[in-house]
Amino acid sequence: MKKHWYDYLWILSLAYLILGFFNILFAWLGLLCFFIPLIISIGWGTKGYCNRYCGRGQLFALLGGRLGLSRKKDIPNWMKSRWFRYGFLIFFFIMFFQMLWSTYLVFAGAKDLRQVVTLLWTFRLPWNWAYHGTLFHPGVAQFAFGFYSVMLTSTVLGLITMVLFKPRSWCVYCPMGTMTQLICRAKAK
């Protein structure tokens, strides 16, 4: 089958994860993965992002599929139920707003910048090697730390389910996927 330019977007996803280890401010680029799917679903009413451009999905497909790092078993029924998918979306939103709130606190001067990346919403990993100061407000860096935490957490979850189930199991409960599908469903009526 013919390869397109967008079949190589997994390189960008991988580069994004690696860049976060060198300079945390690159985490801001991750907002593209939030806005592009939303723009496509609101503007065109399709999940074109998931279908074509999602670098993360391609990365999982590559690792789990071609490199064989997946058991390729069926995902359990509860994980593909609407309850779980919508529940995970809501949970993700709550964690996201909590992250925005702590960013706001740094901007307001109520709290100091914390150079940590929180993995799986629990484990605080020191990440000070990737921060070399910013021309802007420390709040800009706080958002970067928070956002990179979100991205790294979801990648780790995705990798776990990739190994346990099928390569792109993350797509089943990916909050962006659920959200864009909801938008498409509303538009299709």
């Binding site: 999940k47 279908n51 999905g57 593909k80 139920s81 797509c171 089943v172 996927g177 599908q181």
Partner: peptide, 9 residues
Amino acid sequence: LCVACGCCR
């Protein structure tokens, strides 16, 4: 139950 992820396509 379809996620519309497009893997099948």
